[in-house]
Nucleic acid binder design. Sequence first.
DNA 1: AAGTGGTCTAGACCACCAT
DNA 2: TGGTGGTCTAGACCACTTA
Lengths: 252, 252
Amino acid sequence: MTRALESGPVAGIPFGQPLYKAVKLRITRGLVDGQWRPGAAIPSEARLAQMFQVSVGTVRKAIDELVAEKILLRQQGRGTFVAAHTADRTLFYFFHLVGKDGRKETPATELLSFVRARAEADEAVKLGIGRGDRVYRIRNLLRLSGEPVVIDDIVIPAQLFVDLDERVFGAREGTIYGLYQARYGINVIRIAERLSATLADRSTGALLGVASGTPLLAIARIAYTYHDRPVELRHSLVDTTEHEYLSDLVKT
Amino acid sequence: MTRALESGPVAGIPFGQPLYKAVKLRITRGLVDGQWRPGAAIPSEARLAQMFQVSVGTVRKAIDELVAEKILLRQQGRGTFVAAHTADRTLFYFFHLVGKDGRKETPATELLSFVRARAEADEAVKLGIGRGDRVYRIRNLLRLSGEPVVIDDIVIPAQLFVDLDERVFGAREGTIYGLYQARYGINVIRIAERLSATLADRSTGALLGVASGTPLLAIARIAYTYHDRPVELRHSLVDTTEHEYLSDLVKT
DNA sequence: AAGTGGTCTAGACCACCAT
DNA sequence: TGGTGGTCTAGACCACTTA
């Protein structure tokens, strides 16, 4: 088997790409179309090698990258699994607040409002949808140890989350990204965040139980699914009196 | 060659460790003791395999991890190089501020003060030194597009940076971490940061050209060298009027 | 015992770079 | 042209999990 894929076993792949990239794309396709669901095991490396007519080493290299991206999880002796949005994973990869003593805690979410609306121009650009397309706007209050700490304003395209409503959102078990994943097949795999400092106005101050003029951490998030497709905007206001935002590049 | 290293070619390694971990440690040793210097190439994979009496694949796996940690850089056809603290690398991995328009810019540094002092209790713990050990305290003003944006307060142990003084610090070419690396052989390879929101007091406001009471982003950083050894504390205050802090997990 | 991922080897060939 | 890293293969054996 030569390096380039001039007419290989993996169809629909650009020429000149390494074989393992093609294998990675084939596996990703299986994830996108729901062939292998979150929490479940994908076929064994030997089986995939057989399916794709490549060597096990090549399959391993493809899976290596997906594991590095936290899309797949390997468990020796058990198999390779599609990462699911459990509370633990959310806490580790998608929730960056910790107590000033360093402790991590799962936040309790309280739905403040849920409305149907239309995308503003800048939102449409960031979400890759049309200006004026339908969106849901969701406001949540997050508590840590019972105290209000974060106000989250979420914007998601209605076309991706058909028939989502306040009842479904409120009745979910588990995390918000778990709901996206379980009910709508949308798997958030990466987020990008921009942080700045701002001041609490009267209404947000009231929600967070702080005086207006209190400094707050403002976080603008874009959440992405496979192939860097944006699926959610989220703007957070954080009272950093007792908590901090942790930014730490992971080590091996 | 079996998996475990009961009495292998690589001495001084715990039993039961994979061979490639031992190889990785041997390579890291060469980096720590300055055998292979930043910017220079390490021996070829074939040569290392020969030196360590292992297969090329095992050397590659060790290097793979060091490359993933941004400690080494591979360049096809040229060799594998020790990452150096160039302005570009700093901008990409150690400086997280971007303009609100998304543009990255190298900051201009102005030394405000340089004093010899002794470590406070909490600083000593974070730096892994004794309480009261000598440290340098350095205050810098960072400008972006000519405007003051950041105040940096740096604390470093004097024992690691012997004979550092204001003149040496001010006369450096390149980045601060470049100075640590070139003159003291201390290679910062990872940072951890905690962010919160605060208010400008009168003196910091004056330095940043903002009114007291302006919200600022506070960043507490610990910088690490090999083996997770802390070597620098840095506290930053950022005017986020025109700039934001970018937190983005890197993709493959 | 069977099946999974994890490690290690040896070798072939390709792509890229310097000379 | 020679040396470097990059890809791909094939096979052996180990470690771990499950039944």
